[in-house]
């Protein structure tokens, strides 16, 4: 983007920076709170609760150690990666073509397909009807039971459709004139131009699968298949049911710290992924696409 450094523009930039700083500050409060909570030592916690600032010498990674060294942790992490990876791929493979198809305005029957999927967006059948279907298909104790029912989100499909619609029609027409079929157009023309939205929607799916704990509880009986959110949930529930667990303390951290550490651990991969996605937010957009 061209940057003209007029006085107006600079004043505007300062305004923008101040606005973003305020937003950042407000949003950092809960985040900061969670970080402090995760690192607060147990004795500090029981003495004075969670302080707003930790003294540089008064912090501990005990809560993280306790979670990460749990004997079921590696397995749960692996399961989570499998569910998230496989789920995101399947979701995108089903979403992209549909979104593309619906973005072709003159496709006969487009409204029919639109209504077909919108109907399922409006009317959600609820827990039991889905459960009946999945168990009848024999998907109990299978990751596909977690992945398939939510694999295509109508919301994500339509958002992606809108982005495809935004791409200039000339691109498609030019490619069609060159003799490309729709597969080739989608693959060679549309997708490279749509990296931001595909990554965004991919991120939406990945985050959904990464955080999902209820359907694993429902459909997976085999403990070896449990993903990370379920394990963390079990650890936290256990820590809060201690009146019936009378033996030595299993927890050398406060329940609050465990919760916070659990959240930070689940955030970590997402924290790593997002800046990587942002690289594609500036590159690979329409720049030059039309001119070539």
């Amino acid at each position: 983007m061209l940057r003209v450094r007029t006085r107006d523009a600079i004043a505007f930039q300062i305004g923008v920076a101040i606005f973003l700083s305020i937003i950042l500050f407000i949003i950092l409060i809960p985040l900061w709170r969670v970080i402090v909570t995760a690192f607060v030592p147990l004795d500090t916690y029981t003495r004075e609760g969670i302080p707003f600032f930790l003294a540089p010498w008064d912090w501990t990674v005990e809560a993280f150690r306790q979670l990460i060294t749990h004997s079921l942790f590696p397995r749960a992490l692996l399961n989570s990666f499998i569910i998230t990876g496989l789920g995101t791929i399947i979701s995108l493979l089903l979403t992209i073509p549909m979104a593309y198809g619906l973005s072709v305005k003159n496709l006969p029957g487009r409204n029919f397909f639109m209504i077909l999927i919108l109907f399922t967006y409006l009317f959600s059948p609820g827990l039991i009807p889905v459960y009946l279907l999945i168990t009848r298909m024999g998907l109990t104790d299978n990751f596909l039971a977690i992945i398939l029912p939510p694999a295509v989100s109508v919301y994500n499909t339509l958002v992606m459709m809108r982005f495809f619609e935004g791409l200039p029609d000339e691109l498609r027409e030019a490619a069609a004139l060159d003799g490309a079929n729709e597969f080739q157009i989608l693959w060679n023309v549309m997708l490279p131009l749509s990296k931001p939205i595909i990554l965004t929607i991919g991120l939406f799916y990945a985050v959904y699968f990464w955080n999902e704990f209820f359907t694993p509880i429902l459909y997976l009986n085999d403990h070896d298949l449990m993903p990370l959110p379920v394990l963390l949930r079990n650890i936290l529930i256990s820590a809060s049911f201690n009146e019936y667990v009378e033996y030595d303390a299993f927890s050398s951290s406060a329940l609050e710290s465990l919760k916070a550490a659990g959240v930070l651990i689940t955030m970590l991969p997402m924290l790593a992924i997002y800046p990587w996605i942002q690289r594609y937010f500036t590159k690979g957009t329409l720049v030059g696409g039309v001119k070539e």
Binding site: T46, R47, E48, Y244, S251
Partner: peptide
């Protein structure tokens, strides 16, 4: 439970094990 361990109040209703078993009472 976190609050009584921080000495926030002086009268309460509590389960005997949640109060007095070693693992529960030690922080207090």
């Amino acid at each position: 439970r976190a609050r009584w361990k921080q000495g926030l109040f002086g009268i309460m209703w509590e389960d005997f094990a949640a109060l007095s078993n070693k693992s529960n009472y030690t922080p207090f």
